[in-house]
Design a protein around this nucleic acid. Sequence first.
DNA 1: ATAGCTGCAAAACCTTTGCAATCAA
DNA 2: TTGATTGCAAAGGTTTTGCAGCTAT
Lengths: 145, 145
Amino acid sequence: METSELRKAGLKATLPRLKILEILQANKDDHLSAEDVYRLLLEEDEDVGLATIYRVLAQFEDAGLVVRRHFEEGHALFELAEIGPHDHIVCLGCGKVEEFSDENLVNRLGEIAKELGYEMHNHTLVLYGQCSDDNCPRRAKSRPV
Amino acid sequence: METSELRKAGLKATLPRLKILEILQANKDDHLSAEDVYRLLLEEDEDVGLATIYRVLAQFEDAGLVVRRHFEEGHALFELAEIGPHDHIVCLGCGKVEEFSDENLVNRLGEIAKELGYEMHNHTLVLYGQCSDDNCPRRAKSRPV
DNA sequence: ATAGCTGCAAAACCTTTGCAATCAA
DNA sequence: TTGATTGCAAAGGTTTTGCAGCTAT
């Protein structure tokens, strides 16, 4: 039950919070903006204010339930915090996205951070390349390094 | 002469554009927001509108002269486009951004891509952590890994 | 001369906040 | 009951845009 997840985070199990959690779980492969969550809730006839969504997402972030990302766009995207692989490789030819994880690599990143005088909390890594699928159109835009 | 850089990009060599280029070059180790550029220009008694700065930075971006980045904060940061890849580390406490590069790491990324069946062309990597500056407010939201 | 550029002010966005009403425990 | 939570509306901060005047070529 999600109720206990919320309790564990020190949050009362209110309807808006449960609904927002549901939306995130139902879309766990996507990155949702606050607006996205708002729209998805409206589609289910759940009437939750946008301000509440921002507040709840911030609380979830503090509780470690979700991660807030800033990509190229001018707004934040949220996704459920996951255990497990969370780096991405994107094919410049066919656009497919795969996930991977490499513990050694992550350890190395932590070392690099330490050398720079930081305690690493997190990272984002995306590799861009050309896959070797036979049916990949190979429209890669940049040259290999 | 910077004038020719601008001409090559199809932009008239106006005073605001030259001044903005100068500011970027004089601060090439930093990541500047539009406000930062605005403030730095005011300090030199150069009266350039903020709207112009946004417009010029967007034009520079289109021309490939600068790169726009979105880190944790709610605004964009700009830097001169550089030769060669470089990665970033962001302090979750005070928001400062530093650059680093590690050739071994990049080689390792290439290997990982190859293992996954890709030929790597490019990558983006951002480490998030807590710096050890005495005056860092340490508002980091997530836990160390 | 003229197409392009600038500054200003207003608008458009995304996000946060104050407050009175409501709700979970 | 009581402190936490919500919705609304208003405010905050960043970025874009319309337009009249100015500038580089």
